[in-house]
Design a protein around this nucleic acid. Structure first.
Length: 721
DNA sequence: GGGTTAACCTTTTTT
DNA sequence: AGGTTAACCC
């Protein structure tokens, strides 16, 4: 078969990787070096040139979105659908495996997936049953402890026991939590991976079966795999050793959640004879952007050593803007985007990147103000919204009565007079008898321990769920959701709420119906459509916003920007404590990860890159003086050009009008927001707010030494600088 | 049992 | 600041 079309748009290094003879292959692919293209072409090459059946291929990606895109590209390249090819995220694939082999995996057939929110609740409950104080044992840290061990493949009895009594308590919670998961038929995210791993490890028949089936395994974003994921891959690959891993150690930014860059180094040790390819030619960014990014990343130690180059144009210098505060920063950025659009650019070609999602707010406010369309990525996703989770919990409970988290979620939502006291009774009974709360409730309804009122309310709830389940019979997924919304009165409940929030919730619930209508599950995993939908809702949290068709500016965190590219990029908030983040500054390892994050951000830019920082930033309601990020100093000066905006221009366009002339006691200028002033006692500072006019005007000044003060202008004796 | 106020706590993210 | 959760009162 003629496979030349696969190679048409590849360079020599890419071509070598794509057509490498099967075996262990490691592709170190720098930012913008055509990583996805190599992966896609490799699959096409396997199918066309090697005549490998798509059924024998397993491909793992980092997100569901990436999986969908890659499948689309491969099908376009091949010209036929490859439905039989296993392709997805580690969690998605593990889930599929566990559904097909629930018995061998020791799970109940109707097991449901526990998201991190529900996981936290269940951990709290475990702690309650162990009578542990949440003050002393913060549930979030316990959650972290449990997940970290699971991600390293350790069950409670496999955690190395030290003499540390704290550790012993944590292990006790881990054990208790596992027991509850088992009792309720629940599997958390880390458990999906761990179970799937153990299934393949311990079950020789299945292991050999899948090793035989998956002749070729491909992994994207290999630098972001954790220990259990890598071990699972190694098991699946078996003796064939046909593992094709693509990654970039410089773009490892998920160490904080268990990802191990070391897997890249380990790869060559685990698979002697690995063919390693380096993709260092960058097709994305201009020379200056690339040099600037290289300058920053070169400060990291222990890199595999890779130097990106381009034969494209030098392009413009990277631009640096020092804003007065975060509002000024946003104004500046949006001004430039407007200019870009005025010159014929698309707004969707522009990305505003930040370290943490909270930073999007200021940008949003001003974008709204000037009426520029935008889209924010990240934040609360569709299936994570409270009202959606409530609705799904009804479905879950109908599908599996033993699901306690679902029970707790809906038993009194909307309120029907079942309070904490009654619930405590049920919990205590359930805990004692090792029963799900549903069963406990049924027994208690037959007994005499409940108050009349509680009994009445619980009976209502009980028949509601039974009625719902009954009406579900013979109905399709969409109809079931309509029945559930009708009987539960969830929509009515939110309609009664005041404000726009209630309206938004109602709309979201209605949106759930269309989500169900659009949901197609084609997998032959033997799942009923509703259970498939519930799993889908857990595994794929859904986009935060509906697809936007308008030409929008893209706002997102640096983490979500990975894998994307934009002609114009603004990397904002480059300040010590914000980026690098406060909590990463002390540890060298974490700091290096922040630097990689910076590198990822910079290398998203194709034509122009702006770096911005603010001198004053409001954080947690406090005004803070900032210091420029160390990463700014790490950009080699020759690739940087500083943008200076005159103070007059800044005030004209961005700041509220200055206090009327003559109000400042001394000095040659007016006191205005953003202006530098000096006070005889407090020293130098910057005016942050002005309230009122004339004699009664009050100003807030951030003094470099004395902090923030409110002063009455007439008495303050300020000198403008 | 339900609604209202006071303390609290802030990464990054997918699954 | 803002949002959530926990204590508190009706």
């Amino acid at each position: 078969m003629d496979v030349s079309h696969i190679f048409d748009e590849l360079n020599d290094a890419q071509r070598a990787a794509v057509a490498a003879p099967p075996g262990p292959i490691l592709v170190l692919a720098g930012a913008g070096s055509g990583k996805t293209r190599v992966l896609t072409c490799r699959v096409a090459w396997l199918v066309e040139a090697m005549e490998i059946s798509p059924l024998s291929i397993l491909a793992v990606t980092f997100t569901n979105k990436a999986a969908r895109e890659m499948r689309g590209r491969i099908e376009k390249m091949l010209g036929f659908p490859v439905g039989g090819m296993w392709m997805g995220t580690f969690h998605g694939l593990a889930h599929r495996l566990l559904r097909q082999h629930w018995q061998e995996a020791g799970l109940s057939q109707d097991f449901q997936i526990l998201d991190s929110d529900d996981q936290l609740r269940l951990i709290k409950r475990s702690m309650k049953e162990l009578a542990l104080d949440e003050e002393y044992w913060p549930p979030r840290e316990v959650q972290w402890f449990i997940n970290a061990h699971k991600e390293e493949g350790r069950r409670p009895d496999q955690v190395p026991q030290g003499p540390d009594p704290q550790q012993r308590t944590l292990l006790g919670i881990y054990e208790k939590y596992e027991g509850l998961c088992r009792r309720f038929g629940l599997v958390d995210f880390a458990e999906l991976l761990l179970r799937a791993f153990e299934l393949i490890k311990d079950n020789q028949i299945l292991r050999e079966r899948y090793q035989k089936r998956f002749q070729h395994v491909l992994v994207d974003e290999f630098q972001d795999t954790n220990s259990i994921q890598y071990n699972w891959l190694k098991l699946l690959v078996g003796q064939s050793r046909n593992l094709f891993a693509v990654g970039d150690d410089d773009q490892s930014i998920y160490g904080w959640r268990g990802a191990r860059v070391e897997n890249i180094l380990q790869f060559e040790r685990d698979f002697p004879g690995t063919q390693t390819f380096r993709l260092e030619q960058n097709y994305r960014s201009t020379g200056n952007i690339l040099s600037a990014a290289n300058g920053v990343i070169s400060r990291n130690d222990g890199r595999l050593g890779k130097k990106l180059w381009t034969d494209g144009a030098e392009g413009e210098l990277v631009k640096l803007y020092t804003a007065y505060n975060e509002t000024d920063e946003a104004r500046f950025v949006i001004d430039r985007i407007a200019a870009w659009a005025d010159n014929g650019g698309l707004r969707s070609e522009v990305a505003v990147l930040y370290r943490s999602n909270a930073q999007s707010r200021v940008f949003e406010e001003i974008l709204l103000d000037v009426g520029m369309p935008y889209r924010v990525y990240g934040g609360l996703r569709f299936f994570e919204r409270a009202e959606i989770k409530d609705a799904l919990a009804y479905l879950r409970l109908c599908s599996s009565r033993q699901n306690d988290p679902a029970f707790e979620r809906v038993v009194n939502t909307p309120t029907r007079g079942i309070g904490n006291k009654t619930l405590e009774q049920i919990r205590a009974y359930a805990g004692g008898k090792d029963l799900p709360m549903w069963d406990a409730m049924e027994i208690m309804l037959r007994g005499n321990d409940l108050s009349g009122r509680a009994r009445g309310s619980l009976t209502v709830f009980h028949s509601l769920i039974e009625e719902m389940t009954g009406q579900f019979r013979g109905q399709d997924l969409t109809a079931r959701i309509e029945i559930m919304l009708e009987l539960s009165k969830l929509i009515e409940h939110h309609q009664k709420e005041k404000g726009e929030k209630g309206q938004a919730r109602v709309e979201n619930l209605q949106e759930l119906i269309s989500a169900a209508r659009n949901f197609e599950h084609e997998e032959d995993d033997g799942l009923k459509p509703m259970d498939a939908f519930l799993s889908h809702a857990s595994l794929e949290a859904g986009e935060g916003q509906a697809e936007e068709w308008e030409d929008c500016v893209q706002l997102m965190s640096l983490h979500s920007a990975k894998g994307l590219e934009f002609p114009l990029v603004f990397l904002t908030g480059l300040e010590e404590g914000l980026f690098p983040h406060q909590r990463s500054i002390k540890e060298p390892g974490r700091l290096e990860e922040e630097r990689r994050l910076c590198y990822v951000g910079m290398t998203r830019a194709m034509q122009q890159l702006y770096l911005t920082h603010a001198e004053v930033r409001r954080l947690y309601g406090r005004e803070n003086y900032t210091r420029p990020s160390r990463f700014l100093a790490e950009v080699p000066g020759e690739f940087l050009s500083e943008i200076r905006v005159t103070r007059a221009a800044k005030e004209y366009s961005y700041n509220p009008p200055a206090v009327s002339p003559g109000m400042a006691d001394e000095g040659d200028g007016d006191v205005s927001v953003g202006g530098q002033v000096s006070h005889p006692k407090f020293g130098d500072g910057v005016v942050v707010h002005i309230e009122g006019r004339g004699d009664y005007a009050r100003v807030q000044v951030n003094f470099e030494a004395a902090g923030s003060k409110w002063l009455v202008l007439a008495y303050a004796n300020l000198t403008t600088l």
